[in-house]
């Protein structure tokens, strides 16, 4: 296990440097951050002076070297727009995104597992067919459209749920949480549904097909022959083995889901990292962009590592990978 983690850390440092390098390459194409922090009538010389002051006129490699040196000390630069350290800005926005992803993951787990199992056990049942049909629609509608439709129906027309933002939040040691107030929880419903709308059908289908495959295997037939109760066969013997591929996909999808939050958060004015990222692109807040990319890189590495560890716990055969 220890060797495995050390290897991962070394790998991830390399990955981080590559990401930062790519980020730096893109950064110069996105636009001039100085444009966004001065009014339009400010003269060209004033802008040039500001560029010089911010070190934007230095050669590429010097800027990159400076960034790496500071990053090694945990300083990812100052956000031009927020006028604060970029890492501080990102960390302040992270709770919102993490809570949103958590809620949608919860929705996905709660609904996809029973639905997937049911569809696998009773493939010809009308409800299974209905679910398979709607899941295709669910997968093909883009998130932002789902989000706007949800707002239109539940906020504008029915007036049941709030249309934007996080509502009331409570600060626990710097973590702004919406889980502890009714208002905060209500605000989580629509964005949570919107974000899960893409992944939920995918998982129902995945669980269904994996489970159907498992149900065909010899040991299940043997279990039936042994006369075990159906519930035990389905949930204990079949479902547990269905989980392996589901967890792998889930890990990757968790990362993708964080990426999808860009759309959901923008529509719902959800003050998380995705929203911040999109705004940073629009404002050419390049230092924040690079910091965010590095941060998300770290996140992906961490999530994948955790998934690998869980995988090992569920399936003892896999544990060997770390022991080489």
């Amino acid at each position: 296990m220890f060797a495995f983690i050390v290897k991962r850390v070394v790998q991830s440092i390399f990955v981080m440097i590559v990401i930062a390098f790519i980020g730096f390459c893109i950064k110069h194409q996105i636009g001039d951050p100085v444009r966004d922090i001065v009014g339009i009538s400010v003269s060209a010389e004033e802008r040039e002076a500001l560029r010089e002051e911010l070190g934007l006129n230095d050669p590429f490699m010097i800027q990159f070297g400076r960034f790496l040196k500071n990053a090694a000390q945990g300083d990812l630069g100052l956000s031009y727009f927020f006028k604060k350290p970029a890492l501080e800005v990102i960390l302040a926005k992270a709770p919102a995104t993490i809570e949103l992803v958590l809620v949608s993951s919860l929705f996905i787990i709660i609904f996809s597992i029973p639905a997937g199992i049911f569809a696998a056990i009773r493939p010809r049942h009308w409800f299974s067919r209905f679910m398979m049909g709607t899941s295709i629609v669910g997968v093909s509608i883009p998130v932002f459209l789902t989000a706007i439709l949800l707002i239109f129906v539940f906020s504008v027309e029915l007036n049941w749920l709030p249309s934007y933002g996080r509502g009331e939040t409570v600060n626990i040691g710097g973590w702004q949480t919406g889980f502890l107030t009714i208002d905060g929880l209500i605000h989580l419903i629509l964005p949570g549904i919107a974000l899960s709308s893409i992944m939920l059908p995918l998982f129902i289908r995945l669980i269904r097909s994996e489970m159907m495959e498992v149900l065909e295997t010899d040991y299940i037939k043997y279990a039936w022959a042994k006369g075990l109760k159906p519930g035990r066969i389905w949930l204990l013997h079949a479902f547990k083995n269905t989980l392996l591929p589901v967890i792998t996909v889930g890990g990757v999808q968790l990362g993708i889901m964080i990426a999808y939050t860009i759309l959901t958060e923008t529509v719902f004015q959800w003050q998380g990292m995705g929203f911040m990222f999109l705004e940073a692109v629009e404002r050419s807040d390049t230092s924040l962009l690079v910091a965010y990319m590095v941060f998300v890189g770290v996140l992906f590495v961490v999530v994948n590592t955790v998934v690998d560890i869980i995988y090992g716990l569920v399936n003892p055969m896999v544990r060997i990978t770390g022991r080489k």
Partner: peptide
């Protein structure tokens, strides 16, 4: 004051009374 960048969301917030 809440900034709402997206046009559609800003209008929805108004129409829903938020």
């Amino acid at each position: 004051l809440t900034p709402i960048k997206s046009d559609a969301t800003r209008v929805a917030a108004m129409l829903s009374g938020d």
